[in-house]
Design a protein around this nucleic acid. Sequence first.
DNA 1: AAGTGGTCTAGACCACTTG
DNA 2: AAGTGGTCTAGACCACTTG
Lengths: 236, 236
Amino acid sequence: MAIPKFTVIKQHICDNIESGNWPQHTKVPSENELAEQFAVSRMTARRALQELTEQGLLVRSQGAGTFVATFKSQSSLLEIKNIADEVESRGHEYRSVQLVLESRPINEELAILLNCERDKPVFYSELLHFENGEPIQLEQRFVNSKLVPTYLKQNFNTVTPHEYLSAVAPLTEATHEIEAVVADKVQCELLGIEPSQPCLRVKRRTWASQGVVSVAILTSPGQKYRLGGHIIIEKE
Amino acid sequence: MAIPKFTVIKQHICDNIESGNWPQHTKVPSENELAEQFAVSRMTARRALQELTEQGLLVRSQGAGTFVATFKSQSSLLEIKNIADEVESRGHEYRSVQLVLESRPINEELAILLNCERDKPVFYSELLHFENGEPIQLEQRFVNSKLVPTYLKQNFNTVTPHEYLSAVAPLTEATHEIEAVVADKVQCELLGIEPSQPCLRVKRRTWASQGVVSVAILTSPGQKYRLGGHIIIEKE
DNA sequence: AAGTGGTCTAGACCACTTG
DNA sequence: AAGTGGTCTAGACCACTTG
Protein backbone atom coordinates (compact mmCIF):
# COMPACT_ATOMS: atom_id res chain seq x y z
CA MET A 1 0.00 0.00 0.00
CA ALA A 2 1.66 3.20 -1.12
CA ILE A 3 -0.24 5.85 0.83
CA PRO A 4 -2.42 4.78 3.74
CA LYS A 5 -6.08 5.67 3.38
CA PHE A 6 -6.19 7.65 6.61
CA THR A 7 -3.34 9.81 5.29
CA VAL A 8 -5.31 10.62 2.16
CA ILE A 9 -8.26 11.72 4.28
CA LYS A 10 -6.03 13.79 6.57
CA GLN A 11 -4.53 15.49 3.58
CA HIS A 12 -7.95 16.27 2.19
CA ILE A 13 -9.00 17.92 5.45
CA CYS A 14 -5.70 19.81 5.81
CA ASP A 15 -6.05 21.14 2.30
CA ASN A 16 -9.48 22.51 3.04
CA ILE A 17 -8.31 24.17 6.25
CA GLU A 18 -5.11 25.61 4.84
CA SER A 19 -6.78 26.97 1.73
CA GLY A 20 -9.26 28.82 3.92
CA ASN A 21 -12.07 26.79 2.46
CA TRP A 22 -12.98 25.62 5.96
CA PRO A 23 -12.39 28.54 8.33
CA GLN A 24 -12.24 28.28 12.10
CA HIS A 25 -15.24 26.62 13.77
CA THR A 26 -16.39 25.07 10.50
CA LYS A 27 -18.01 21.73 11.06
CA VAL A 28 -16.07 19.06 9.23
CA PRO A 29 -17.70 15.89 7.85
CA SER A 30 -18.54 13.27 10.45
CA GLU A 31 -16.83 9.90 10.69
CA ASN A 32 -19.70 8.28 8.87
CA GLU A 33 -19.75 10.88 6.11
CA LEU A 34 -16.02 10.56 5.53
CA ALA A 35 -16.27 6.78 5.59
CA GLU A 36 -18.85 6.87 2.84
CA GLN A 37 -17.14 9.62 0.86
CA PHE A 38 -13.78 7.84 0.81
CA ALA A 39 -15.23 4.32 0.76
CA VAL A 40 -13.42 3.24 3.91
CA SER A 41 -14.55 1.84 7.22
CA ARG A 42 -15.58 4.18 9.98
CA MET A 43 -12.46 3.25 12.00
CA THR A 44 -10.22 4.50 9.22
CA ALA A 45 -12.09 7.77 8.84
CA ARG A 46 -12.00 8.10 12.60
CA ARG A 47 -8.24 7.71 12.66
CA ALA A 48 -7.79 10.65 10.30
CA LEU A 49 -9.98 12.88 12.46
CA GLN A 50 -8.32 11.66 15.64
CA GLU A 51 -4.79 12.36 14.48
CA LEU A 52 -5.65 15.85 13.26
CA THR A 53 -7.27 16.49 16.63
CA GLU A 54 -4.07 15.47 18.40
CA GLN A 55 -2.15 17.81 16.12
CA GLY A 56 -4.44 20.63 17.19
CA LEU A 57 -6.13 21.29 13.86
CA LEU A 58 -9.52 19.95 14.89
CA VAL A 59 -11.66 19.92 18.00
CA ARG A 60 -14.11 17.12 18.68
CA SER A 61 -17.19 17.00 20.86
CA GLN A 62 -19.17 13.87 21.48
CA GLY A 63 -22.68 14.21 20.12
CA ALA A 64 -21.99 17.57 18.52
CA GLY A 65 -19.38 16.92 15.86
CA THR A 66 -15.87 17.79 14.75
CA PHE A 67 -14.82 21.38 14.07
CA VAL A 68 -11.85 23.32 12.75
CA ALA A 69 -9.86 24.48 15.78
CA THR A 70 -9.73 28.10 16.86
CA PHE A 71 -6.07 28.61 16.35
CA LYS A 72 -3.29 26.70 14.83
CA SER A 73 -0.90 27.30 17.68
CA GLN A 74 1.97 26.70 15.35
CA SER A 75 5.26 28.50 15.08
CA SER A 76 7.54 26.21 16.91
CA LEU A 77 9.77 27.26 19.71
CA LEU A 78 12.74 25.46 18.36
CA GLU A 79 12.90 26.04 14.72
CA ILE A 80 15.45 23.85 13.14
CA LYS A 81 17.92 26.28 11.81
CA ASN A 82 21.08 25.81 9.93
CA ILE A 83 23.80 27.02 12.26
CA ALA A 84 25.74 28.60 9.40
CA ASP A 85 22.73 30.75 8.49
CA GLU A 86 22.18 31.59 12.11
CA VAL A 87 25.72 32.85 12.64
CA GLU A 88 25.71 34.76 9.38
CA SER A 89 22.35 36.33 10.22
CA ARG A 90 24.08 37.89 13.20
CA GLY A 91 26.58 39.39 10.78
CA HIS A 92 29.35 37.17 12.09
CA GLU A 93 31.86 35.03 10.31
CA TYR A 94 31.03 31.34 10.18
CA ARG A 95 33.44 28.49 9.85
CA SER A 96 33.39 24.78 10.64
CA VAL A 97 35.87 21.96 10.90
CA GLN A 98 35.06 18.35 10.18
CA LEU A 99 36.68 16.26 12.90
CA VAL A 100 35.36 12.81 12.08
CA LEU A 101 33.44 11.23 9.22
CA GLU A 102 33.22 7.48 9.37
CA SER A 103 31.15 4.36 9.65
CA ARG A 104 30.70 3.30 13.23
CA PRO A 105 28.85 0.56 15.14
CA ILE A 106 26.18 1.77 17.53
CA ASN A 107 24.93 0.71 20.90
CA GLU A 108 21.44 -0.41 21.73
CA GLU A 109 20.18 3.01 22.77
CA LEU A 110 21.13 4.58 19.46
CA ALA A 111 19.89 1.57 17.52
CA ILE A 112 16.43 2.11 18.95
CA LEU A 113 16.53 5.87 18.39
CA LEU A 114 17.69 5.46 14.80
CA ASN A 115 15.47 2.46 14.20
CA CYS A 116 18.50 0.55 12.91
CA GLU A 117 19.94 -2.80 13.79
CA ARG A 118 22.10 -2.99 16.86
CA ASP A 119 25.82 -3.66 16.36
CA LYS A 120 25.57 -2.79 12.70
CA PRO A 121 27.35 0.35 11.64
CA VAL A 122 25.76 3.68 10.87
CA PHE A 123 27.43 6.83 9.63
CA TYR A 124 28.89 9.24 12.13
CA SER A 125 30.13 12.79 11.74
CA GLU A 126 31.65 15.16 14.21
CA LEU A 127 32.01 18.86 13.49
CA LEU A 128 33.06 21.91 15.39
CA HIS A 129 31.26 25.13 14.47
CA PHE A 130 32.91 28.53 14.91
CA GLU A 131 31.47 32.04 15.19
CA ASN A 132 34.02 34.79 14.61
CA GLY A 133 36.76 32.25 15.23
CA GLU A 134 35.37 31.05 18.57
CA PRO A 135 34.02 27.51 18.92
CA ILE A 136 30.30 27.65 19.61
CA GLN A 137 29.00 24.17 19.03
CA LEU A 138 30.15 20.57 18.84
CA GLU A 139 27.92 18.55 16.55
CA GLN A 140 27.93 14.76 16.83
CA ARG A 141 25.59 13.14 14.39
CA PHE A 142 24.55 9.55 13.73
CA VAL A 143 22.95 9.02 10.36
CA ASN A 144 20.77 6.17 9.13
CA SER A 145 22.98 4.61 6.48
CA LYS A 146 20.07 3.00 4.65
CA LEU A 147 18.29 6.27 4.07
CA VAL A 148 21.37 8.35 3.27
CA PRO A 149 23.90 5.96 1.71
CA THR A 150 25.96 8.81 0.24
CA TYR A 151 26.65 10.54 3.57
CA LEU A 152 30.29 9.45 3.89
CA LYS A 153 31.17 10.85 0.47
CA GLN A 154 30.46 14.43 1.51
CA ASN A 155 32.87 17.09 2.64
CA PHE A 156 31.38 18.83 5.62
CA ASN A 157 33.93 21.61 5.60
CA THR A 158 31.99 23.24 2.80
CA VAL A 159 28.40 22.29 3.51
CA THR A 160 26.80 21.52 6.88
CA PRO A 161 25.27 18.10 7.56
CA HIS A 162 21.99 19.90 8.11
CA GLU A 163 22.11 21.43 4.65
CA TYR A 164 23.06 18.16 3.02
CA LEU A 165 20.42 16.12 4.82
CA SER A 166 17.77 18.73 4.09
CA ALA A 167 18.54 18.33 0.41
CA VAL A 168 18.55 14.54 0.19
CA ALA A 169 15.97 13.67 2.86
CA PRO A 170 13.71 16.64 3.61
CA LEU A 171 12.64 16.97 7.21
CA THR A 172 9.11 16.05 8.10
CA GLU A 173 9.35 15.88 11.85
CA ALA A 174 11.76 16.40 14.72
CA THR A 175 11.99 15.98 18.44
CA HIS A 176 14.28 17.76 20.84
CA GLU A 177 15.51 17.23 24.32
CA ILE A 178 17.39 20.00 26.00
CA GLU A 179 19.44 19.73 29.13
CA ALA A 180 22.23 21.45 30.98
CA VAL A 181 25.29 19.28 31.37
CA VAL A 182 28.97 19.29 32.23
CA ALA A 183 30.93 18.33 29.14
CA ASP A 184 33.72 15.80 29.33
CA LYS A 185 37.40 16.76 29.16
CA VAL A 186 37.85 16.26 25.43
CA GLN A 187 34.75 18.24 24.61
CA CYS A 188 35.78 21.06 26.92
CA GLU A 189 39.11 21.32 25.13
CA LEU A 190 37.43 21.42 21.74
CA LEU A 191 35.02 24.09 22.90
CA GLY A 192 37.77 26.02 24.66
CA ILE A 193 36.08 26.11 28.03
CA GLU A 194 36.87 25.12 31.59
CA PRO A 195 35.32 21.87 32.83
CA SER A 196 33.37 23.89 35.39
CA GLN A 197 31.41 25.74 32.73
CA PRO A 198 27.94 24.40 32.04
CA CYS A 199 26.94 23.41 28.54
CA LEU A 200 23.64 23.35 26.77
CA ARG A 201 22.98 20.02 25.14
CA VAL A 202 20.31 19.47 22.51
CA LYS A 203 19.49 15.98 21.36
CA ARG A 204 17.62 16.14 18.14
CA ARG A 205 16.00 13.28 16.27
CA THR A 206 14.99 14.03 12.73
CA TRP A 207 12.59 12.25 10.41
CA ALA A 208 12.04 12.30 6.71
CA SER A 209 9.07 10.64 5.07
CA GLN A 210 10.91 7.31 4.96
CA GLY A 211 11.76 7.20 8.66
CA VAL A 212 14.35 8.35 11.18
CA VAL A 213 17.20 10.09 9.39
CA SER A 214 19.57 11.12 12.13
CA VAL A 215 20.23 11.65 15.78
CA ALA A 216 22.29 14.75 16.51
CA ILE A 217 23.92 15.69 19.79
CA LEU A 218 24.68 19.40 19.87
CA THR A 219 26.82 20.71 22.71
CA SER A 220 27.38 24.42 23.23
CA PRO A 221 29.02 26.44 25.97
CA GLY A 222 26.24 27.88 28.13
CA GLN A 223 27.81 31.33 28.09
CA LYS A 224 28.20 31.65 24.38
CA TYR A 225 25.12 30.07 22.99
CA ARG A 226 21.50 30.69 23.62
CA LEU A 227 18.45 29.07 22.23
CA GLY A 228 15.53 31.26 21.52
CA GLY A 229 11.96 30.69 20.64
CA HIS A 230 8.90 32.64 19.77
CA ILE A 231 5.34 31.49 20.03
CA ILE A 232 2.44 33.37 18.60
CA ILE A 233 -0.96 32.27 19.70
CA GLU A 234 -3.37 33.18 16.98
CA LYS A 235 -6.55 34.94 17.89
CA GLU A 236 -10.01 33.82 17.00
CA MET B 1 -18.02 1.78 31.09
CA ALA B 2 -16.16 3.23 34.04
CA ILE B 3 -12.53 2.95 32.94
CA PRO B 4 -11.76 2.12 29.31
CA LYS B 5 -9.82 -1.07 28.82
CA PHE B 6 -6.98 0.62 26.96
CA THR B 7 -6.52 2.95 29.95
CA VAL B 8 -6.13 -0.02 32.28
CA ILE B 9 -3.45 -1.47 30.02
CA LYS B 10 -1.66 1.90 29.75
CA GLN B 11 -1.65 2.21 33.52
CA HIS B 12 -0.22 -1.28 33.87
CA ILE B 13 2.64 -0.44 31.52
CA CYS B 14 3.29 2.95 33.12
CA ASP B 15 3.44 1.34 36.55
CA ASN B 16 6.06 -1.11 35.38
CA ILE B 17 8.15 1.63 33.83
CA GLU B 18 7.91 4.07 36.71
CA SER B 19 8.62 1.46 39.34
CA GLY B 20 11.84 0.59 37.53
CA ASN B 21 10.52 -2.89 36.92
CA TRP B 22 10.97 -2.34 33.18
CA PRO B 23 14.10 -0.24 32.70
CA GLN B 24 15.05 1.55 29.51
CA HIS B 25 15.21 -0.63 26.40
CA THR B 26 13.16 -3.39 28.02
CA LYS B 27 10.98 -5.16 25.53
CA VAL B 28 7.37 -4.76 26.52
CA PRO B 29 4.71 -7.39 25.73
CA SER B 30 3.53 -7.45 22.14
CA GLU B 31 0.06 -6.47 21.02
CA ASN B 32 -0.96 -10.10 20.88
CA GLU B 33 0.44 -10.87 24.32
CA LEU B 34 -1.35 -7.93 25.89
CA ALA B 35 -4.56 -8.82 24.09
CA GLU B 36 -4.49 -12.29 25.57
CA GLN B 37 -3.33 -11.17 28.99
CA PHE B 38 -6.08 -8.56 29.38
CA ALA B 39 -8.66 -10.51 27.38
CA VAL B 40 -9.20 -7.72 24.87
CA SER B 41 -8.96 -7.51 21.12
CA ARG B 42 -5.63 -6.75 19.51
CA MET B 43 -6.87 -3.29 18.44
CA THR B 44 -7.49 -2.34 22.05
CA ALA B 45 -4.08 -3.54 23.20
CA ARG B 46 -2.59 -1.73 20.23
CA ARG B 47 -4.23 1.51 21.24
CA ALA B 48 -2.59 1.40 24.66
CA LEU B 49 0.87 0.86 23.11
CA GLN B 50 0.26 3.49 20.47
CA GLU B 51 -0.75 6.22 22.90
CA LEU B 52 2.20 5.56 25.15
CA THR B 53 4.45 5.76 22.10
CA GLU B 54 3.01 9.15 21.20
CA GLN B 55 3.63 10.26 24.77
CA GLY B 56 7.26 9.27 24.39
CA LEU B 57 7.33 6.42 26.92
CA LEU B 58 7.70 3.67 24.35
CA VAL B 59 9.46 3.18 21.05
CA ARG B 60 8.09 0.81 18.44
CA SER B 61 9.79 -0.91 15.56
CA GLN B 62 7.96 -2.97 12.99
CA GLY B 63 9.04 -6.57 13.11
CA ALA B 64 11.23 -6.05 16.16
CA GLY B 65 8.86 -5.08 18.96
CA THR B 66 8.02 -2.34 21.43
CA PHE B 67 10.58 -1.06 23.91
CA VAL B 68 10.78 1.29 26.86
CA ALA B 69 12.09 4.61 25.55
CA THR B 70 15.39 6.09 26.57
CA PHE B 71 13.96 9.19 28.16
CA LYS B 72 10.53 10.04 29.12
CA SER B 73 10.53 13.20 27.10
CA GLN B 74 9.41 15.72 29.57
CA SER B 75 7.94 19.10 29.04
CA SER B 76 7.02 20.32 25.65
CA LEU B 77 8.66 23.34 24.23
CA LEU B 78 5.87 23.98 21.83
CA GLU B 79 3.35 24.61 24.50
CA ILE B 80 3.54 26.64 27.61
CA LYS B 81 2.40 24.23 30.19
CA ASN B 82 1.45 24.65 33.74
CA ILE B 83 4.16 22.92 35.74
CA ALA B 84 1.61 21.48 38.16
CA ASP B 85 -0.21 19.74 35.31
CA GLU B 86 3.07 18.56 33.90
CA VAL B 87 4.19 16.90 37.12
CA GLU B 88 0.78 15.37 37.70
CA SER B 89 0.64 14.03 34.17
CA ARG B 90 3.71 12.00 35.07
CA GLY B 91 1.71 10.52 37.93
CA HIS B 92 3.88 12.35 40.45
CA GLU B 93 3.01 14.44 43.46
CA TYR B 94 3.18 18.20 42.90
CA ARG B 95 3.73 20.83 45.54
CA SER B 96 4.94 24.42 45.54
CA VAL B 97 6.04 26.95 48.10
CA GLN B 98 5.63 30.70 47.71
CA LEU B 99 8.86 32.31 48.85
CA VAL B 100 8.23 35.95 47.97
CA LEU B 101 5.26 38.01 46.82
CA GLU B 102 5.82 41.73 46.84
CA SER B 103 6.10 44.99 44.98
CA ARG B 104 9.61 45.72 43.85
CA PRO B 105 11.44 48.37 41.82
CA ILE B 106 13.08 47.15 38.65
CA ASN B 107 16.23 47.92 36.76
CA GLU B 108 16.48 49.23 33.26
CA GLU B 109 16.78 45.85 31.58
CA LEU B 110 13.57 44.57 33.13
CA ALA B 111 11.82 47.88 32.53
CA ILE B 112 12.48 47.49 28.84
CA LEU B 113 11.44 43.85 28.81
CA LEU B 114 8.24 44.56 30.71
CA ASN B 115 7.60 47.78 28.84
CA CYS B 116 7.18 49.60 32.15
CA GLU B 117 8.75 52.74 33.56
CA ARG B 118 12.17 52.36 35.08
CA ASP B 119 12.48 52.73 38.88
CA LYS B 120 8.75 52.28 39.35
CA PRO B 121 7.72 49.12 41.12
CA VAL B 122 6.26 46.03 39.52
CA PHE B 123 5.00 42.88 41.18
CA TYR B 124 7.41 40.08 41.92
CA SER B 125 6.82 36.50 42.96
CA GLU B 126 9.24 33.74 43.75
CA LEU B 127 8.16 30.11 44.01
CA LEU B 128 9.83 26.77 44.41
CA HIS B 129 8.16 23.85 42.62
CA PHE B 130 8.50 20.27 43.88
CA GLU B 131 8.03 16.92 42.18
CA ASN B 132 7.66 14.02 44.60
CA GLY B 133 9.15 16.22 47.31
CA GLU B 134 12.25 17.16 45.31
CA PRO B 135 12.76 20.75 44.19
CA ILE B 136 12.66 20.88 40.41
CA GLN B 137 12.25 24.52 39.51
CA LEU B 138 12.74 27.98 40.93
CA GLU B 139 10.32 30.45 39.37
CA GLN B 140 11.07 34.17 39.60
CA ARG B 141 8.42 36.27 37.95
CA PHE B 142 8.04 39.99 37.33
CA VAL B 143 4.51 41.05 36.54
CA ASN B 144 3.22 44.20 34.89
CA SER B 145 1.27 45.84 37.71
CA LYS B 146 -0.86 47.91 35.37
CA LEU B 147 -2.21 44.91 33.52
CA VAL B 148 -2.65 42.64 36.53
CA PRO B 149 -3.36 44.92 39.51
CA THR B 150 -4.70 42.06 41.65
CA TYR B 151 -1.54 39.93 41.49
CA LEU B 152 -0.34 40.63 45.02
CA LYS B 153 -3.65 39.53 46.53
CA GLN B 154 -3.25 35.95 45.36
CA ASN B 155 -1.99 32.96 47.29
CA PHE B 156 0.39 31.06 45.07
CA ASN B 157 0.54 28.08 47.37
CA THR B 158 -2.80 26.93 45.99
CA VAL B 159 -2.71 28.14 42.38
CA THR B 160 0.33 28.66 40.16
CA PRO B 161 1.09 32.12 38.75
CA HIS B 162 0.71 30.60 35.31
CA GLU B 163 -2.83 29.45 36.10
CA TYR B 164 -3.78 32.78 37.58
CA LEU B 165 -2.33 34.84 34.76
CA SER B 166 -3.93 32.58 32.16
CA ALA B 167 -7.29 33.31 33.75
CA VAL B 168 -7.00 37.10 34.05
CA ALA B 169 -4.83 37.89 31.02
CA PRO B 170 -4.94 35.11 28.46
CA LEU B 171 -1.69 34.48 26.64
CA THR B 172 -1.41 35.66 23.10
CA GLU B 173 2.32 35.40 22.56
CA ALA B 174 5.50 34.30 24.27
CA THR B 175 9.23 34.25 23.73
CA HIS B 176 11.84 32.04 25.31
CA GLU B 177 15.53 32.08 25.82
CA ILE B 178 17.22 28.99 27.08
CA GLU B 179 20.71 28.78 28.45
CA ALA B 180 22.88 26.63 30.67
CA VAL B 181 24.14 28.46 33.74
CA VAL B 182 25.72 28.02 37.11
CA ALA B 183 23.21 29.09 39.73
CA ASP B 184 24.25 31.34 42.61
CA LYS B 185 24.72 30.04 46.13
CA VAL B 186 21.24 30.90 47.38
CA GLN B 187 19.59 29.30 44.38
CA CYS B 188 21.70 26.16 44.71
CA GLU B 189 20.59 25.78 48.30
CA LEU B 190 16.96 26.20 47.35
CA LEU B 191 17.27 23.64 44.57
CA GLY B 192 19.31 21.30 46.75
CA ILE B 193 22.26 21.03 44.39
CA GLU B 194 25.99 21.60 44.49
CA PRO B 195 27.28 24.85 42.95
CA SER B 196 29.14 22.76 40.36
CA GLN B 197 25.96 21.33 38.90
CA PRO B 198 24.73 23.06 35.77
CA CYS B 199 21.24 24.47 35.59
CA LEU B 200 18.86 25.01 32.74
CA ARG B 201 17.49 28.54 32.70
CA VAL B 202 14.48 29.57 30.68
CA LYS B 203 13.60 33.23 30.36
CA ARG B 204 10.05 33.61 29.22
CA ARG B 205 8.28 36.80 28.26
CA THR B 206 4.51 36.56 27.98
CA TRP B 207 2.02 38.82 26.26
CA ALA B 208 -1.71 39.26 26.52
CA SER B 209 -3.68 41.36 24.09
CA GLN B 210 -2.97 44.52 26.11
CA GLY B 211 0.81 44.08 26.15
CA VAL B 212 3.63 42.41 28.07
CA VAL B 213 2.24 40.62 31.09
CA SER B 214 5.27 39.06 32.73
CA VAL B 215 8.88 38.06 32.55
CA ALA B 216 9.62 34.72 34.19
CA ILE B 217 13.01 33.27 35.00
CA LEU B 218 12.79 29.53 35.48
CA THR B 219 15.83 27.73 36.86
CA SER B 220 16.00 23.94 37.04
CA PRO B 221 18.76 21.52 37.93
CA GLY B 222 20.16 20.13 34.68
CA GLN B 223 20.10 16.60 36.04
CA LYS B 224 16.52 16.56 37.14
CA TYR B 225 14.74 18.51 34.52
CA ARG B 226 14.65 18.17 30.80
CA LEU B 227 12.89 20.16 28.20
CA GLY B 228 11.50 18.33 25.25
CA GLY B 229 9.88 19.45 22.07
CA HIS B 230 8.14 17.91 19.16
CA ILE B 231 7.82 19.54 15.80
CA ILE B 232 5.71 18.29 12.99
CA ILE B 233 6.46 19.91 9.70
CA GLU B 234 3.34 20.20 7.66
CA LYS B 235 3.44 19.12 4.10
CA GLU B 236 2.78 21.46 1.28
C1' DA C 1 9.15 -19.77 9.67
C1' DA C 2 7.41 -17.34 13.34
C1' DG C 3 6.61 -13.19 15.50
C1' DT C 4 6.07 -8.25 15.26
C1' DG C 5 3.89 -3.95 14.32
C1' DG C 6 0.92 -1.20 10.39
C1' DT C 7 -3.31 -0.88 8.09
C1' DC C 8 -8.02 -1.97 7.48
C1' DT C 9 -12.82 -3.97 7.68
C1' DA C 10 -17.75 -4.38 9.04
C1' DG C 11 -19.91 -4.82 12.37
C1' DA C 12 -21.58 -3.59 17.71
C1' DC C 13 -23.20 -0.95 21.91
C1' DC C 14 -22.82 3.18 24.35
C1' DA C 15 -23.10 8.34 26.07
C1' DC C 16 -23.89 12.48 24.55
C1' DT C 17 -25.78 16.75 22.15
C1' DT C 18 -29.13 18.48 18.85
C1' DG C 19 -33.55 19.58 16.68
C1' DA D 1 -35.43 10.52 17.30
C1' DA D 2 -31.50 11.00 14.68
C1' DG D 3 -26.82 11.98 14.48
C1' DT D 4 -22.37 12.30 16.67
C1' DG D 5 -18.17 10.73 18.68
C1' DG D 6 -16.01 6.89 22.19
C1' DT D 7 -15.02 2.22 22.87
C1' DC D 8 -14.50 -2.40 21.37
C1' DT D 9 -14.49 -6.89 18.72
C1' DA D 10 -12.71 -10.66 15.76
C1' DG D 11 -11.24 -11.15 12.10
C1' DA D 12 -7.81 -10.01 7.65
C1' DC D 13 -3.54 -9.08 4.80
C1' DC D 14 0.78 -6.87 4.70
C1' DA D 15 5.94 -5.40 5.51
C1' DC D 16 9.36 -6.08 8.35
C1' DT D 17 12.82 -8.27 11.65
C1' DT D 18 14.56 -12.13 13.96
C1' DG D 19 16.22 -16.84 14.81
